[in-house]
């Protein structure tokens, strides 16, 4: 296993980008989908939005740290950007068309 001293700059930059941008994308998705699911469950828009805002930054902190802990960089990117993208799209669709 590579030690931290042997890390390539590219690898490190990729982790940092995943931590910052990937986690943001993920949280944006969680918030969008969370609000529409909340609406579906009968919550008011204000309550659904507030609930997601209360959770969003705890989720971001967790996702950010995870980007530096998990072994596979590919999994991190797929989960954060992919998952975030899918949740954002689904939330948007449910909110505007369902």
């Amino acid at each position: 296993m590579a030690s931290s001293k042997e890390l390539s700059v590219l690898h490190l930059l990729s982790r940092i980008s995943a931590g910052i941008a990937g986690a943001y994308c993920f949280v944006f998705g969680v918030t969008t989908l969370g609000i529409t699911l909340g609406l579906g469950l009968g919550m008011s828009y204000t309550d659904a939005q507030t609930l997601m805002y209360l959770l969003a930054f705890l989720i971001y902190t967790t996702a950010f740290c995870w980007a530096f802990i998990h072994r596979s960089l590919l999994t991190i990117w797929l989960f954060l950007i992919g998952g975030g993208g899918v949740m954002t799209a689904l939330g948007w669709w449910l909110g505007n068309h369902a």
Binding site: Q49, A56, G91, W92
Partner: peptide, 21 residues
């Protein structure tokens, strides 16, 4: 502090969910 300005950091209700909001 983050929650106070969450509407700026995550502007969901002004963009993607503007219609239902």
């Amino acid at each position: 502090g983050l929650i106070v300005f969450a509407y700026i950091y995550l502007p969901v209700s002004e963009t993607l969910l503007a219609k239902p909001a």
